[in-house]
Computed example of a mutant assay.
Amino acid sequence: MSIGLPTLPPASPPSRTRGRGGVVALALVVIVIAGATAGWWSLRRTPASPGAVVTPRAAALEDTAARAPSGVRIRVRVINVSGITGLARRTTQHLREYGFDVVDFGSGPKERASATRIAVHTGHDAWATRVRKAMGVGEIVISPDSSRYADLTVFVGSDWRAPTETLRP
């Protein structure tokens, strides 16, 4: 009688069906990813149809026609009349990036407005045009008032979409 270590049964040869199933599954995954990529690419490249509504976009930061003129202080007041929380603060940040001096911001009356209005108080219509170009939306209205401390008042409606915020350290 000999005492020894138990032995394992001999290994069975690898199954061919298991290998084929893995290849088929991998092929299906590749086909699905390729199809999704092709669909995304075609949607991305499709031009808007003639009757489609195109949302206005803000001008690039480098666009000099959208920035406050160099050496000129344009005092802007921002009032959120959209009902969207935090939109006045986001608008303030956006306009300051374009060089406008936002001296005040806050929320307006309880009634909500869908359209953004830019009120000109000091007769500088060209400044309002620059703000409209920087925001991408806005109707310019003349509202002379020499007692105001701001040159322009922006009543931010729900038609303006703030750009996505970047992560800042």
Rank of each mutant, 00 (worst) to 15 (best):
S2N: 10
I3N: 11
I3L: 07
P6A: 07
L8M: 11
P9Q: 09
P9D: 10
P10L: 13
P10D: 13
A11G: 08
A11L: 12
S12H: 04
P14H: 07
S15Q: 06
S15P: 03
T17A: 02
T17C: 01
R18A: 14
R20S: 07
V23L: 09
V24L: 07
V24Y: 00
A25M: 09
L26E: 02
L26S: 14
V30R: 03
V30M: 05
A34F: 06
G35P: 02
G35A: 15
A38G: 14
G39F: 09
G39T: 13
W40H: 10
W41P: 00
L43S: 06
R44M: 10
R44E: 12
R45I: 09
T46A: 15
P47N: 13
T55Q: 12
A58W: 03
A60Y: 05
A60D: 15
L61I: 14
E62T: 15
E62H: 11
E62D: 15
D63A: 11
T64C: 00
T64H: 02
R67M: 10
A68T: 07
P69M: 10
P69K: 10
S70V: 12
R73K: 08
R75N: 09
R75K: 14
I79V: 15
I79H: 00
S82C: 02
S82V: 01
G83Y: 03
G83C: 01
I84D: 04
T91L: 03
T91W: 04
Q93G: 15
H94A: 09
H94Q: 15
H94K: 13
L95W: 08
V102K: 07
V102H: 12
D104T: 04
F105A: 10
P109R: 08
P109G: 15
S114L: 02
S114I: 01
A115R: 12
T116R: 03
G123K: 08
G123I: 05
G123W: 04
H124E: 11
D125W: 00
W127P: 00
A128S: 07
R130Y: 05
V131R: 09
K133Y: 01
G136N: 09
I140P: 08
V141L: 11
P144W: 01
S146F: 02
Y149K: 12
Y149H: 06
A150G: 00
P163H: 08
T164V: 12
T164D: 08
